[in-house]
Design a protein around this nucleic acid. Structure first.
Lengths: 159, 159
DNA sequence: GCACTTATTATGAGTCCTTCACAATAAGGC
DNA sequence: GCCTTATTGTGAAGGACTCATAATAAGTGC
């Protein structure tokens, strides 16, 4: 167990710099997200309640969305899954999710700091000024590959 | 109004090839998605009901998810939005959403057929076998840029 | 340190999107 | 045309998240 108070102070000053009050709820949520990256609100609630049992789910939702707006947290929504949160922000990394078990891995940007930031628009579309390019990789993690020694590797979606 | 029956037959044979029965509900949903790309289930229901008023929302959900599994439709979920559907499948294109108005544009793949398909894993992650790489661009479309001649271009999220 | 103001949190209910269980219907093979 | 069974319709339920309001407590000034 490393020096928690150092983290606490870092979070506190970050909150201050955004004009937010430093509450134990926010610190608990931040710590929970830090120690459980890629967790949904429910998981963050469970983790934070170990330190702060009276914390409510609604507070977690409020805190998470506020801190996400402040860019102190990053939120992403894999298909068929509730939103996941992480403290790793500002480094333009991406995510890979296992379509079998749902496990999530971070993927560093392969193309520098702004991957694929120059879309080639198709004919009929009105271009946009792109600010973010999120890449979501989907595949099968090694664990799941080992478990299901697939008989056929082609799609077996014939119902 | 082009030749609808041609489309109908194409959908019908596609359904057959997947072992599905050809029903007016499925055809209505497929036509609705084709004519309203990037529509949510509710919008597809509304569009399909113009041809088939007795169609129910639940049927639309069932049909959409089944056809998505069959890869006859493609589904994607922008942040803070219900799932959107389109008939353009198998061409590995991506999407750009306007963070202001929610408008969605197709973006052709900038890097050939498999963009960014070779993630650089960070140190601690177990690599996965990547099958899909979805890119979600977020920005501001021209219309919204024109409407809000932003006074400050930095973030005004100080509440 | 002690009020006081107001941001935050807790409480409770409500919304939206989607799915489930089961009965009614109809597509397609015979 | 009939029969089997996939599909659809009906009605209700579930999960994830948000909203309105009251209670609480951070941070400010005295």
């Amino acid at each position: 167990m490393a020096d928690h108070s150092a983290d606490q102070e870092a979070w506190a000053s970050a909150l201050h710099s955004h004009g937010r009050r430093v509450t134990k709820q926010r610190l608990a949520v931040l710590a929970a997200v830090q120690h459980n990256p890629h967790s949904p609100a429910e998981g963050i609630l469970a983790a934070a309640r170990k330190d702060l049992p009276e914390l409510t789910a609604q507070s977690v939702y409020v805190v998470l969305s506020d801190l996400t707006d402040l860019q102190m947290l990053r939120r992403f929504e894999p298909p068929h899954s509730p939103a996941l949160y992480e403290t790793r922000v500002g480094d333009n990394h991406h995510h890979a999710v296992c379509i079998s078990c749902g496990r999530v891995e971070d993927v560093d940007c392969a193309v520098g700091h702004a991957p694929c930031l120059t879309p080639h628009w198709d004919e009929h579309s009105k271009p946009m000024t792109i600010q973010i390019a999120d890449v979501l990789y989907q595949g099968i993690c090694q664990d799941c590959q080992a478990k299901q020694q697939l008989p056929t590797q082609t799609q077996v979606t014939t119902k």
